[in-house]
């Protein structure tokens, strides 16, 4: 496959087009505006429709509309904008509409800054909006992986009729790397449920509304059944040099990539360190991590947050292995050297 140099967010945009997405709605926000700009440029070239919304609130509801008529749709934003979309995401999830979201996470809380962060982990994986719903959350660590996960995101969104989130950060979004796109025929057909006009069939409704609590509970039970299927079928992770490892680092996304460098540095010094990198943040690879952490002397969780994924690591490890945490917040990216230094301090203390 031919490789081209692309910025992370633009590669995600091109992957969306390759996935058959022809409808994009979004609102500019740093550090992802290049994706919005890319779609503005590219979509008309492929017969698609780009619309700059008046707000993220409007954008997410435009997504709802375009998805409900059966089309593949995407929006992208960064943390404060993603907060504004939460109500709409809850509606989309309950109405069982496929839609792909990209959150290029930046430092927070509040207005925060525009540097890379993973501080929206709770929002992405534990709700964000109201009610009992789940987002499928994919966390790429390279530009190449971001393109592959974007293609996957559209397939998963259609397969499960559920919103899917690409959880990126400013580092991944802004860096340029060589990428290759898999050329494949894209076909999808949502005509069996979409609002296409009631020609030759009874009218259909797409709704997240049911005034009868027993009826709404039934809708909820359907959603939960679907989430159990997602958990059984779609959990993804990468294991790197874990078999002989004595210590396991757990990190996702950009930090997962940095941690890989730490593992290599440690191996050069003869330290047996391995990496467990969750790719799906929901469904979280609890079982695989539980297994990977067995008989290790230490699990070190590293994040660009105060320790949000740490809670899932604790659930997975379940007290069987000692867990330590190293995190930087607010847009500060940890270097491999500082993580390695911290790791060596922990080893000396053992």
């Amino acid at each position: 496959m031919k490789k081209v140099m692309m910025k992370g967010v633009e590669a995600i945009g091109e992957a969306a087009i390759k996935a058959g997405c022809r409808n994009y709605f979004g609102y500019p926000i740093t550090p992802q505006s290049e994706l919005t700009e890319y779609m503005a440029r590219r979509l008309p070239e492929v017969g698609g429709s780009f619309l700059q919304a008046e707000s993220e609130v409007a954008a997410v509801n435009m997504l709802y509309g375009a998805s409900s008529v059966g089309k593949r749709v995407m929006t992208s934003t960064s943390s404060p904008g993603f907060s504004l979309m939460q109500e709409g995401i809850s509606y989309i999830a309950c109405a069982q509409l496929p839609a792909v979201f990209v959150n290029v996470v930046r430092g927070g809380p509040g207005l925060g800054d525009i540097q890379p962060s993973q501080g929206d982990y709770f929002q992405a994986t534990k709700g964000g909006g109201h009610g009992d719903y789940r987002l499928i959350v994919l966390s790429p660590s390279t530009v190449q992986e971001a393109t592959e996960l974007t293609l996957l995101a559209f397939d998963l969104a259609d397969k499960y009729r559920n919103p899917v989130l690409i959880f990126a950060d400013g580092l991944l979004g802004q860096m340029m790397e060589p990428v290759a796109f898999e050329e494949k025929e894209i076909t999808y057909d949502n005509s069996h449920w979409a609002l296409t006009g009631s020609k030759n069939r009874p009218p259909r409704q797409v709704t997240s509304f049911n005034i009868d609590p027993y009826g709404l509970e039934k809708m909820n039970i359907e959603l939960q059944k679907k989430y159990r299927q997602v958990e059984a079928n779609e959990t993804r992770y990468e294991e790197f040099l874990i078999e002989d490892a004595d210590i396991l680092i757990v990190a996702h996304g950009t930090v997962g990539r940095i941690a890989k460098s730490v593992v290599r540095m440690a191996r050069e010094e003869g330290l047996k360190i391995g990496l467990f990198r969750p790719i799906t943040l929901y469904p979280y690879p609890y079982d695989a991590l539980s297994k990977a952490a067995q008989e290790k002397s230490l699990v070190l969780t590293v994040e660009m947050s105060s320790g949000q994924m740490l809670e899932d690591v604790k659930l997975a490890v379940c007290g069987k292995t000692k867990i330590e945490f190293y995190g930087r917040m607010a847009g500060v990216v940890p270097t491999p050297e500082e993580i390695f230094t911290h790791l060596k301090t922990l080893i000396r203390g053992q």
Binding site: R22, N23, F25, S49, L51, A53, V57, A58, A59, N61, M62, L63, Y64, G65, A66, S67, S68, V69, G70, K71, V73, G88, L195, T196
Partner: peptide, 13 residues
């Protein structure tokens, strides 16, 4: 958000 939803529908179809 009705008109935003309607906008999305109309842009797509």
């Amino acid at each position: 958000r009705a008109t935003a939803v309607a906008t999305g529908m109309k842009r797509a179809r």
